[in-house]
């Protein structure tokens, strides 16, 4: 079964990467940002499969972005691979610290604690003038294993890099979701007592998912800051986290591609709503989400998944 997954991944990479030939710069930027945010949302989906939703995933989006920016500004690291790896490791460590602590909480308590952590970071960064305070920091253009493209080439290279990260990460997460641990995550969402009495640790399951989500958040934040060239504490603000939850609900928990499709839809709807209804674009987004919830209660992913049952 795995070879089919790898085949789909290869096709997805080729199709998405081919977009760099036909897409204008603005569209490549929009897609790169959408896919970067999709990575963060994929982390939320991983947690949703276990029955919890983080309202504070902006925490790792922000940590990833600031880590990459500080590594670039303080130590002169410009290679995007090194920046991505470094940010991911930092987020992994932070996730491994908070994951076991949060793994005992469920429902609104989990959601509010994750939100609180992200808002603590937001408040702290806003007051720390040494790293830009509320104005944030800028980051220079990245290099790719020593290659320093500019203009359209930079945009293309960055876009293809994002596509590669998304395809690799998405494939790995699909493998995880289909694995024994993935099945236990789904069972945990359903009946924790049963899982414990079969001999598995629900707390570990929750901690793993939280930690994976942290790494995905860091990846998304790194790509976003490199694409934007700027980071500020708003990355950790609750509205940013809310946007990630919006995408996760839109996508549902059944399908990995649906997460990225939902992220792209959100970016496109927001961009065009902003253009045509600058004062009421949030209203357009709200109506759009309502329509999706009413017509597809299990999210867009239910269209792509053969799985029966389940609720978002």
């Amino acid at each position: 079964m795995r070879y089919i997954l790898f085949l789909y991944a290869a096709i997805a990479f080729v199709v998405l990467a081919a977009g760099s030939i036909i897409l204008p710069d603005w569209a490549m930027f929009l897609f790169a940002m959408a896919l970067a945010k999709g990575l963060v949302c994929l982390g939320i989906v991983a947690m949703m499969r276990g029955g919890v939703v983080s309202f504070g995933q902006g925490l790792y989006y922000c940590i990833g972005a600031y880590t990459a920016t500080l590594a670039a500004n303080l130590w002169g690291v410009s290679d995007i691979f090194a920046l991505t790896l470094f940010s991911s490791v930092v987020c992994l460590i932070v996730g491994m610290i908070f994951g076991p602590m949060l793994a005992t909480y469920r429902g609104i308590f989990f959601a509010m604690l994750t939100l609180a952590l992200s808002m603590v970071l937001y408040g702290t960064l806003s007051k720390m003038s040494v790293i830009g305070g509320s104005d944030g920091l800028n980051i220079g253009s990245p290099t790719f294993l020593g290659w320093a493209p500019e203009g359209r080439d930079l945009q293309t290279a960055l876009y293809i890099y994002v596509v590669a990260i998304v395809v690799i990460t998405g494939t790995l997460m699909r493998i995880y979701f289909d694995s024994e641990q993935g099945l236990i995550t789904l069972a945990t969402r359903d009946n924790e007592l049963r899982v414990e009495y079969l001999g598995a640790s629900v707390r570990k399951v929750m901690a793993y998912n939280y930690t994976f989500a942290a790494v995905l958040g860091g990846l998304g934040g790194t790509i976003a800051v490199v694409a934007l060239g700027h980071v500020d504490p708003e990355f950790a603000f609750w509205t940013t986290s809310g946007e990630f939850v919006f995408v996760a609900i839109l996508a549902g928990y059944m399908s990995v591609p649906a997460v990225f499709v939902a992220a792209i839809i959100l970016e496109v709807v927001r961009s065009f709503s902003n253009l045509y209804f600058p004062n009421t674009w949030q209203l357009s987004l709200g109506i759009f989400l309502l329509i999706v919830i009413v017509t597809l209660p299990n999210g867009l992913g239910s269209l792509l998944s053969r799985r029966k049952g389940g609720k978002t």
Partner: peptide, 16 residues
């Protein structure tokens, strides 16, 4: 079966 079969649950081994 997955939980009982192996104490170290796999992140990669397909549940199905």
């Amino acid at each position: 079966g997955a939980i009982h079969h192996d104490e170290r649950l796999s992140f990669f081994r397909h549940a199905h």
